[in-house]
Write a protein that binds this DNA or RNA. Structure first.
Lengths: 106, 106
DNA sequence: AAGTCAGTTCGTAAACTTGCGAATTAAAAA
DNA sequence: TTTTTAATTCGCAAGTTTACGAACTGACTT
């Protein structure tokens, strides 16, 4: 019986995964990553949700550190936070390393 | 104004990300992937949660298709579902492809 | 047959998420 | 200065998640 604390990395990865855990937020990130769209207004015309709901989703992505927004009047320009995006990529990569179970579970 | 439906891939990725969106579930998957542990009982001794809560988390991972369980009395052996794990890996990889924004967002 | 052991399901409470429209803010245009 | 425009915040309802302990199930022991 030796209960282990969860690590900071586990908390970080879960935090990011949680932010990715909604299809609208995936769609937002794909738009931003592919650069086909960057402005709040454009996104709100494409995505099947109300403007206020979009703001909420953008906020969650911002809180998770995955995107950042700049006011460029009369709208807001959103983009991937490249530093944290790279960090997220790395965290997921290390989770998805090759599975190490030659004899177990077969 | 051309509201777009969300794609099946976006829904799938979000579904998986949601399942990864809790530190305990990350810890479980890491244990299973690294094969340091596979049995329910062992996990319940290591993770800082009640046995019933662990069952719930394992169920969510199972529902998301990421793991599978086999009854090996007197316990249950859990493992990564390698097929879906590979699929998940692929979905995340394609999300995290290089960002394509030479002039935007700088 | 009664007890034990391991895991799951049930019931429930508290917190969080998702969604919307209404109200608000803040800047630009009339 | 009033109106318009674009986005955010507020308030709320409905649903989901997380967590726990208690009750249950099913198989092995005694």
């Amino acid at each position: 019986m030796s209960k282990k604390e969860l690590t900071v990395e586990q908390e970080q990865l879960a935090r990011i995964a949680k932010a990715l855990g909604h299809p609208v937020r995936i769609a937002i990130l794909e738009m931003l990553a592919s650069q086909s769209c960057c402005y709040h207004g454009d996104m709100s015309e494409i995505l099947p949700i109300a403007k206020s709901t979009l703001s909420q989703h953008l906020n969650e992505l911002k809180d998770a550190g995955l995107i950042q927004g700049t006011i460029i009047l009369p709208t807001v320009k959103y983009c991937i936070n490249e530093e944290n995006w790279a960090k997220a990529k790395k965290l997921f990569s290390s989770l998805f390393v090759e599975i190490n179970n030659p004899e177990c579970c077969k």
